[in-house]
Design a protein around this nucleic acid. Structure first.
Lengths: 203, 203
DNA sequence: GCTAGTTTGTGAATCAATTCACAAGCCCTG
DNA sequence: CAGGGCTTGTGAATTGATTCACAAACTAGC
């Protein structure tokens, strides 16, 4: 299979959101043009994006809303429940723990980890805060799929190395540093300061 | 001036971070190749990115670390102090309020706003939480440059409309919805659920 | 079951971003 | 101050993403 561009995957996520919205409103079918309008892109773009994965529409009619939604969930890997661990039980960790969007989309937060004795043993939005030194043993047992790094920049690379060594192959990083990892590990970084710089550049 | 690609601006942010790192280590000059290696890109890319804005290097020698850092800060608009308001004093708002990366880069958080009476009047990491109904009056007076939306998806479009009407032209949105705004307003959305879907697609 | 009216799926064309490749410029050494 | 060794800045070439445009396939109305 040809490599799929990041921008394509992003748009698929967007389409899925709109489809869920349409589903709630009870619409049975939707055209690539309607999806495009809702998402600020073009109908050709929508059709091209989908064409990488198959043909889901009926000519002359459009796409069945529930069918396309199911197909997109499948493509995006949302068919199964993913287990997530949060590294760092500070403010960002807490914000993530309570973030509704995760649960809604089948992401189950298994536990949070911290090194701070004051936090260990407590609960964060109903999620256990565990001692970071248990990480490797827990990962071996519970096999989480994704780690979210919610810690300061200094410790981020070391934490990444640890979760990778423990066997986790997908990481979402909120620390404002560039991280490096083996090629078979996917790391996405969300850097808020960088986003703000994108804004100040525009101003 | 030609339009500058988003990806270019992102990379400039990254280069600036590395330059600051090099500055701390006391390096006087750096080559495009060294910057590229540190940032996982190519030396041609670095030079091309910079060439959109002028020539900052010396042939045979490379770039002066402090000079290039200054130039990049200027380009990215980090020369002045930007005033930021946070809309929403919940968990995400709190996480942002304490986020060190902002202060370090010249972003001054003026205030947070909320509609919840329990939160109004308190402090969030040393930042006043004000009644949302004061927003327009305060913005007229204090002229903040940037608004950060840290509220649930339902209210996000309405909040965006309000800050735009009040005169703010740059918005960083953490609500998991697609927002629309007039063309002269720059909106950047950070959607954590979407980032996670990028990961599950890769897996 | 034929015709008019839609809308898909997809090669071809265009537009944008990245990489190549090299002349021009600078430092350093002797 | 001439020559060797680097490194920049930038047109040209390439690679990648988006848009165009149209044949093929479907629905609905009669």
């Amino acid at each position: 299979m040809k490599r799929i561009a990041d921008s394509t995957v992003r748009r698929l996520s967007i389409y899925l959101r709109f489809l869920e919205e349409f589903e709630e409103r009870g619409l049975a079918t939707v055209s690539s043009d309607a999806l495009a309008r809702r998402g600020g892109t073009t109908s050709a773009q929508v059709r091209k994006d989908l064409s990488f994965f198959g043909s889901f529409g009926k000519r002359g009619l459009g796409y069945s809303v529930p069918e396309l939604a199911t197909a997109l969930r499948e493509i995006l890997g949302l068919g199964k429940e993913w287990r997530v661990v949060i590294i760092g039980a500070g403010k960002i960790g807490a914000a993530l723990a309570q973030y509704r969007g995760f649960r809604q989309r089948g992401f189950h937060i298994v536990a949070a980890y911290d090194t701070n004795a004051d936090k260990i043993g407590r609960e964060l939005e109903g999620i256990q805060v565990r001692n970071m030194n248990r990480l490797e043993a827990d990962v071996a047992l519970e096999r989480p799929d994704i780690a979210v790094l919610a810690i300061p920049g200094e410790g981020a690379q070391a934490a990444l190395d640890r979760v990778v060594r423990a066997g986790i192959r997908a990481v979402l990083n909120f620390a404002p540093v560039q991280l490096s990892a083996p090629a078979d590990v996917t790391v996405k970084t969300v850097n808020m300061a960088m986003e703000l710089e994108g804004l100040t550049f525009a101003l």
